[in-house]
Computed example of a mutant assay.
Amino acid sequence: MKVPLFNHILLLRYAGLFTYLCTGLPLLSSSWRAEGVETGSPDHVGWCVAYVLFGLMYWFATRGLGRRERHLERVPLLIGMNLAAFAIGWFSHSGISAILFLVIAGVVPWTLPFWPSVVWVLVQCFSLFPVFAREPNFTWPDAFLQCAIYVGFSVFTYATSLVAKQQVDSREEQRRLNSELRATRTLLTESSRMSERMRISRELHDLVGHHLTALSLNLEVASHLVHGAAQEHVRQAQTVAKLLLSDVREVVSQLREGDTIDLSAALKTLVDGVPGLNIHLDLPPRFAVDDPLRAQVLLRCAQEIITNTVKHAGASNLWLRCERTETNELAIHARDDGRGAAGFKQGNGLTGMRERLAQVGGRLNIDTHLDRGFALDAWLPLEAAR
């Protein structure tokens, strides 16, 4: 029997929700409650309120799980979930909160980096020490040992969730790299096509054109050496040779006129399938370059912009616009709705972009502020008329 495929992110979310609902079953029966927790008592009311708050915060904290967004905004919700779970354990005089900490351990890897998330899981488990230590039948070593037992369960849940997140990140990175490879292949195809047209035009001009010119000259000489009907045939052959030479020159001119690299297909391929980011691409009707080096620089700049936005910006949208300016330049304008930066320091990627642009006489301008996104403008001059 074939096992149905599930979205593992949604499955992880609803598994946590199911676990949360199961921990609330003691609320339905007074026989399940710890001694001294009567219906309507302050402890019972506190338990109920904390339980409802935990569920609401879990729902909002796991909404959009796996998307590239500002994950740190979930940290206040995680803190609230920890406080609510601790309150449930405190008011219920039980270890139910430890089960809810397992649910939190499944959310932490999607919110915090590795080492902060590991510390978070350990601290939340040992925060139950006061809950266990206040019980009459628990000594302090017993309370510590009980917390250590729940650390084992939390680590297993955390590791399972972390593996799922790493698989998602790897899959998204593969999709992004595949888009870059397909765009590079498109650019190479265009470059190969242009090189082949150039080779054919040169062969026609240098070989066929040369021989036709020599033939015309020989026919011109022959027309002066023969008389009568033979001379008429030589004249006709000379006319045909001149027409053929004119046709060859016209074909060579047409080949050279179409000798440009169309960047539209490569850029559309590059932005297609980038995971977790909506890219709004704006291109002129025909965006072509006659220099392979400039085409490569422009494509690499677009790649670097998309890569930085995906990895660092925490953005949901990227607007990418390319144009030919009135000053005979190619321009690429990019901006996103990410977190931005107050004290910006460019890394190797942007440094490499500046170096690529400098090779062709281009320039780069960056504008970013905290909570105002990231904006980048790049210009590179077009090659002089060939």
Rank of each mutant, 00 (worst) to 15 (best):
residue 68 R to F: 10
residue 362 G to R: 11
residue 2 K to H: 11
residue 236 Q to P: 00
residue 330 L to H: 07
residue 326 E to S: 12
residue 124 Q to P: 00
residue 150 Y to S: 00
residue 140 W to I: 05
residue 233 H to L: 10
residue 366 I to C: 05
residue 288 A to Q: 03
residue 43 D to I: 03
residue 83 L to W: 02
residue 261 I to Y: 06
residue 342 A to T: 12
residue 354 R to H: 15
residue 24 G to Q: 06
residue 84 A to W: 06
residue 325 T to Y: 07
residue 93 H to K: 10
residue 345 K to R: 12
residue 376 L to D: 06
residue 127 S to Y: 06
residue 139 T to D: 13
residue 137 N to C: 01
residue 348 N to Q: 15
residue 39 T to I: 13
residue 247 D to V: 05
residue 62 T to L: 08
residue 237 A to Y: 07
residue 233 H to C: 07
residue 195 S to Y: 14
residue 42 P to V: 04
residue 130 P to E: 08
residue 24 G to R: 04
residue 278 N to S: 14
residue 5 L to T: 08
residue 154 S to R: 01
residue 318 L to Q: 01
residue 6 F to Y: 15
residue 276 G to W: 07
residue 292 P to F: 09
residue 18 F to M: 14
residue 264 S to T: 13
residue 366 I to P: 00
residue 54 F to Q: 05
residue 176 R to A: 13
residue 149 I to Q: 00
residue 18 F to D: 03
residue 140 W to S: 07
residue 131 V to H: 03
residue 41 S to N: 09
residue 231 Q to T: 08
residue 122 L to P: 01
residue 240 V to C: 07
residue 193 R to G: 15
residue 32 W to S: 04
residue 111 T to D: 09
residue 346 Q to W: 04
residue 184 T to L: 12
residue 14 Y to K: 03
residue 23 T to P: 05
residue 382 L to F: 09
residue 345 K to P: 02
residue 168 V to P: 01
residue 7 N to G: 00
residue 87 A to I: 05
residue 24 G to E: 05
residue 240 V to W: 08
residue 273 G to Y: 08
residue 168 V to T: 14
residue 9 I to A: 08
residue 71 H to P: 00
residue 304 E to D: 13
residue 112 L to Y: 04
residue 371 D to A: 09
residue 268 K to W: 02
residue 221 V to T: 14
residue 265 A to I: 04
residue 133 A to Y: 14
residue 78 L to V: 00
residue 21 L to Q: 10
residue 185 R to Y: 14
residue 227 H to V: 09
residue 352 G to W: 11
residue 171 R to P: 04
residue 155 V to T: 03
residue 320 L to K: 00
residue 299 L to M: 11
residue 357 L to C: 14
residue 176 R to C: 02
residue 362 G to D: 10
residue 273 G to L: 09
residue 258 G to Y: 11
residue 47 W to H: 11
residue 367 D to V: 09
residue 81 M to Y: 04
residue 278 N to Q: 12
residue 310 V to K: 01
residue 302 A to S: 15
residue 142 D to I: 09
residue 50 A to Y: 05
residue 66 G to P: 11
residue 307 T to E: 14
residue 292 P to M: 05
residue 249 R to D: 03
residue 308 N to T: 01
residue 334 A to S: 14
residue 346 Q to E: 12
residue 171 R to C: 12
residue 207 L to W: 15
residue 7 N to A: 05
residue 306 I to M: 02
residue 135 E to F: 05
residue 236 Q to V: 04
residue 128 L to N: 01
residue 318 L to I: 02
residue 138 F to A: 02
residue 58 Y to N: 04
residue 227 H to Y: 12
residue 378 A to M: 09
residue 164 A to E: 08
residue 305 I to A: 09
residue 382 L to E: 13
residue 339 R to E: 06
residue 311 K to F: 01
residue 91 F to R: 06
residue 261 I to F: 03
residue 115 W to S: 05
residue 220 E to N: 15
residue 198 M to F: 14
residue 282 D to T: 08
residue 39 T to C: 04
residue 331 A to W: 02
residue 231 Q to C: 12
residue 194 M to Y: 03
residue 65 L to R: 08
residue 175 R to S: 14
residue 149 I to K: 03
residue 271 V to K: 01
residue 89 G to E: 05
residue 183 A to G: 07
residue 171 R to W: 15
residue 82 N to P: 00
residue 65 L to V: 12
residue 222 A to Y: 10
residue 84 A to L: 10
residue 211 H to Q: 14
residue 61 A to C: 14
residue 166 Q to G: 11
residue 90 W to F: 12
residue 273 G to K: 05
residue 220 E to Q: 15
residue 62 T to R: 06
residue 248 V to W: 01
